[in-house]
Amino acid sequence: MLQSPPQAERDPTKRWRRAPIVLVGLMGVGKSTVGRRLAQRLRLPFVDADSEIEEAAGMSIPEIFAQFGEAYFRDGERRVIQRLIDGTPKVIATGGGAFVNDTTRALILAEALAVWLDADIDVLVERVRRRDTRPLLRGKDPAAVLRDLAAARNPLYAQAHIRVASNNAPHEATVRAILRAIGYGAA
């Protein structure tokens, strides 16, 4: 279940050192749910970047996309994540596209511990069908969109310090895998 990039295994400085932990990965992988539980286990604050964006904008993400477009949303996302990565320990769940932005990715890799939650496309499709709130999926085939996003984004997610599978298992199993990967107690 647990896989870490070779760099993380060779470089112990990439293990958790009380820096912010930033969860990255495709939509539906469980960043928010796993992030909340991980934060509880670590006794840290949890922040959902998408919720922070909505609060800052005074509107929902689908409304931001509809009214201003994806580029506007991504710029706001970049600014919010920059504000959240302030050196204090916390768990941050990002939106699926946040790590694609070069500036945001560089900031996360330099100032936080990036954890890529990775799941099979079939698992993601099942999860995203539960809610109709994702602008990139509106009126489209979720499997096709997720396959295309995975092809484009997985090479970028692979730059994360740690990679953990988030498949058909309880979220707690993913939390335990992250705790083991960051060297936190017996998990």
Rank of each mutant, 00 (worst) to 15 (best):
T88Y: 08
D120Y: 09
L23V: 04
S32F: 04
D148E: 14
I64L: 03
Y72W: 13
P135E: 01
A71D: 14
R43V: 06
D120F: 05
V175E: 02
P62W: 00
S60G: 12
L38G: 10
D102T: 05
A151S: 11
F73Y: 06
R127I: 03
Q3E: 13
T33H: 10
P135K: 04
N167F: 07
L44I: 01
Q7G: 10
I121Q: 09
A151Q: 09
K31I: 02
A112R: 02
G87Y: 02
I21A: 12
A19D: 12
I61H: 03
S166H: 11
A143F: 05
E52L: 05
R83P: 04
V22F: 01
P5A: 14
I162R: 06
I81N: 08
L146Y: 06
I64P: 03
R17A: 13
Q7V: 14
E9S: 11
A8F: 03
A186M: 08
E52G: 07
P135W: 01
D120R: 13
R41Q: 13
F46M: 08
Q82C: 08
R180E: 14
E172K: 09
A39T: 02
I162G: 07
H161E: 00
E111Y: 02
R37S: 12
V125I: 09
P135A: 02
V125N: 10
M1I: 08
S4I: 15
G58W: 00
P170N: 09
F46K: 08
G58K: 01
L23E: 03
A49M: 10
A173E: 13
I162D: 02
P62E: 00
R15T: 14
D86I: 08
P45L: 12
W16Y: 02
V164I: 15
A66K: 12
A187C: 09
Q3S: 15
V24R: 07
S51G: 09
M59A: 12
A57M: 11
R134T: 03
P20Q: 00
R130S: 14
G183D: 01
A98C: 05
N154Q: 15
A66L: 07
R78M: 02
E54Y: 04
D148M: 07
A165E: 15
L44T: 04
P170Q: 08
G76E: 02
G87N: 04
G69S: 05
T13F: 03
A93M: 00
E126F: 11
T13M: 10
G96D: 03
A187R: 10
V125E: 05
I53M: 08
D48Y: 05
Q159C: 11
G76P: 06
G185E: 10
V125F: 08
A160P: 12
M27C: 09
P170T: 06
Y72K: 07
A119G: 10
D86F: 04
L136M: 13
R10G: 15
I53W: 01
Y157P: 11
L146M: 08
K31R: 10
V22I: 06
R74M: 01
D75L: 11
T33G: 12
V80L: 05
Q159G: 08
E55S: 12
R134E: 00
P5E: 10
G95Y: 01
V34C: 11
N167D: 15
A173S: 12
G139L: 03
I61P: 03
G97K: 07
A56F: 03
A57E: 10
G87D: 01
P135S: 04
